[in-house]
Design a protein around this nucleic acid. Sequence first.
DNA 1: CACGCTAGGTGTACGGTGTACGCCTGTCAA
DNA 2: TTGACAGGCGTACACCGTACACCTAGCGTG
Lengths: 233, 233
Amino acid sequence: MPRDAAPPRRERLDRDRVLRAAVALADDSGLDAVSMRGLAQHLGVVPMALYKHVADKDELVSGMVDVVLGEIEPPDPALPWKEALRARVLSARRAVLRHPWARRAIEGSTRRTPTVLAHMDAVAGGFRAGGLSPDLTHHVMHALGNRIWGFSPELFEEPAPAEPPSPEQQEAMGREFAQRYPHILEIAVAATRGDLSRVGGGCDEQFEFEFALELLLDGAERLHRAGWASAAR
Amino acid sequence: MPRDAAPPRRERLDRDRVLRAAVALADDSGLDAVSMRGLAQHLGVVPMALYKHVADKDELVSGMVDVVLGEIEPPDPALPWKEALRARVLSARRAVLRHPWARRAIEGSTRRTPTVLAHMDAVAGGFRAGGLSPDLTHHVMHALGNRIWGFSPELFEEPAPAEPPSPEQQEAMGREFAQRYPHILEIAVAATRGDLSRVGGGCDEQFEFEFALELLLDGAERLHRAGWASAAR
DNA sequence: CACGCTAGGTGTACGGTGTACGCCTGTCAA
DNA sequence: TTGACAGGCGTACACCGTACACCTAGCGTG
């Protein structure tokens, strides 16, 4: 009997194959499953083999991020600048939503790869096309922050308690919560349209994202039209 | 001769002492130095001893974050709402700047401690005091994102290359860079007021922070005055 | 006083991580 | 035919978080 019962087919690696395998692995087992060992096993290869294609772990995840960023589709050049920017950013968002781990990977990785720079350059170019000064463009991009990668920080994300405590305990906690953090409660109630049962259930992140994006794009345009210059500095 | 030559004095731990030691250690050796082993050694104690005061590593860093957040000073209640909010957020910022690791710790930790909730509640309360609806308050807080903790994502942060490459190599890279990422270059030039030698040197983060904060607070106020309601939803 | 409970520090061990270093082999150009 | 070299292998190291069992000092109570 043939003895290669182990993992999948194995025909010579290259950097690209490694990265794609890493992405696939992260896609369906989470970023934590992407350890050098785990990935190697997934490829039917010994861990150290990966280092022939990738300098270290950090470069691996940078590469994974590049793959995701590669899925961003450039907006129709005919679009007015604000629409174009919105389109590009929302495309980025769709990409990171397809790969839920990408968010963490982007925040964590320190490397500025060409792909990363290219995206930043494209966004900057979008504002410049609208006539904003380099300075204003710079500040607005800072204000956008991670939103240029298609995500915003998860402020109200709940880790989802393993199992909900007993109803009456929940009741008691709720009462305590209500008097200690009345404003948070108010917000949560408003966010869930009064459906108190799912108060911890998170927000409509897509709405929040677009709300903030619009707020910032409008703010940028307003400052630009008001003739903003970096005099304040 | 007394045989306790080892680390510092050692008089019974308690949770508070552990947390303060962890903060101190992080303050002058970085967050990575705060491993259970490292911290334990620093306290002249065996690693597992810490677990008598802290459930796990995650709770440790949550506790450290609480210590930092505890340094935030509440704004003068006589202040108008926008000034009060600005003051609170800038105080938060001063706190995390005193503890450079706090930024990463906040992003990384998943726990919602009472201290964290209290701060969020205070910020929410600030907007409510200005008359904003719970809904609008909610969205604006999302838009503020991590800025309510006093920091914004480090978009343009350079990892600082171990040693700068040779000048002529730098020149060549510069040329390549200029034609591949013209808009980034533009921005960098503007940000450094034309001093090209320190293009990679980072931005004036404080300015960026306040710029974005102002933009968002103004945007919130404008929406509020325009009678914003959550109809769009 | 003697008791036993308990808070808190100890020791050992396990399974995980990234990765440095040296070896071995198949492919291909000269 | 040869020899360089790309690429996969094996071993080993240092470090991480933490489960589990143990020991001991101090204290409130019978």
